[in-house]
Amino acid sequence: MDFGGHGLSSHYSPGLPYYQENFVSDIRRVVAALKWKRFSIMGHSFGGMVGGMFSSIFPEMVDKLILLDTLPFALDAKGVEDVLTYRRGAIEHLLQVEASQKPRQVVSPEEMLQRFLKNNSHVSEECARLLLQRGTTEVATGLIMNRDRRMALPEYSMDFISRELFVHSAKKLQAHVLLLKAIQGYYNVRRENDSDRNVILFVMDTLKSVLKERFQYVEVPDNHYVHLNQPQNVAGFISAFLLSKETAPHEL
């Protein structure tokens, strides 16, 4: 599904920021419209964090949770310390974009492609063309981006939590969880280096300790966008996980 402000979904009204909890609400609205009672969630990067938050708030609804090169909750070594900075940045950016009232820029398909590749160097050209099919709209003189211009850095939208709340949230999960981590993944894209392993080690230890046999962890070759660039690296693991007879208990 496209979250609000993304793809083919409507943009939020002026004055309403894009926060992680809003996207959790988006999922709940879609589920209500489809009249689903129990289902699985698969999310990549920030989408996985939204899926993890949903799965802890509505644990009885999620059977299986698949995390593609992401964590189930937004936990970062400096996240809690910087959360006020992120919130300020999000509010200031929102005001700035809304005040500018600039029309969305129209560019040629080739220029749009090159801009996308420049800003997303880990995505292949073939995958970029596929993403732009849904991420853009054709107008008389070219293409315009569908994503709301108020969407900025992912950190602006993330609801960072403490380690204590991470453990509490993990204990709420009733789903079986599959975490597929790309070897040249998230830290190589969003961080200058991967020298601080404390966060990922804490996450792995917590999930293994809390979920036990309901947690599976697999490392796969390629980068943060492995599911786009090399889907064969993850498809087998995902298929086996979804086809397995194991289901989450209704009550723990």
Rank of each mutant, 00 (worst) to 15 (best):
G15L: 04
K171R: 11
R38T: 09
P14G: 11
F237I: 09
L117Y: 05
S124G: 14
H224C: 10
H11G: 04
E138F: 06
S157R: 13
A152D: 09
S25E: 12
V203A: 03
A128R: 00
G5N: 07
G52D: 00
T70M: 07
V123F: 06
S209E: 11
L68R: 02
K245G: 15
E21L: 14
G142R: 04
R163N: 09
D222H: 06
R129H: 03
E110W: 01
L228W: 06
Q101I: 04
Y217R: 01
Q184P: 03
K171T: 03
D2V: 08
G89A: 09
I200Q: 11
Q216N: 12
E138Y: 04
M158K: 07
A77C: 07
L180S: 04
V107M: 14
D69V: 02
L242F: 13
G52R: 00
L201I: 13
P59E: 12
K172L: 07
E213Y: 10
Q216K: 14
L153V: 08
S9G: 10
F73N: 05
V107C: 13
I27P: 02
M158A: 10
R147P: 01
G48T: 02
F116T: 03
G236S: 14
F3R: 06
S209D: 12
F237T: 04
N223W: 00
K64V: 02
G142H: 07
Q101E: 14
R129C: 05
M49R: 08
A90W: 03
L130K: 09
D196M: 00
M112Q: 10
S10M: 10
L67G: 00
R29T: 14
L71D: 08
G5L: 01
S45K: 10
L242V: 11
N229Y: 01
A170W: 05
M145T: 05
S55C: 02
M61E: 15
V30P: 02
A140T: 13
E92C: 04
I41Q: 00
S56N: 07
A175Q: 01
L95P: 00
E110H: 10
N233F: 08
H11R: 05
G47D: 01
P249N: 12
N119K: 06
V106P: 02
S55W: 02
D2L: 09
P221L: 04
N229Q: 02
E213D: 15
A140V: 01
H176M: 05
F58L: 03
A128I: 09
K102P: 02
L207N: 08
V83M: 15
A90T: 06
K35Y: 00
V218H: 12
D159E: 06
Q114P: 00
R115M: 08
L67D: 06
R190L: 15
P231L: 11
W36V: 10
D194W: 08
S55A: 15
V31N: 11
S9Y: 03
E60F: 09
F58E: 12
Q174M: 12
T70R: 07
L242S: 11
V218A: 12
G4F: 11
N193Y: 02
Y217Q: 04
Y18I: 14
S55V: 08
G47S: 05
L243W: 10
E21H: 13
A182L: 07
T136N: 01
L94W: 06
T247K: 14
M1E: 13
I66N: 06
E155M: 03
W36Q: 11
P221K: 04
M49V: 05
I183T: 13
N229R: 05
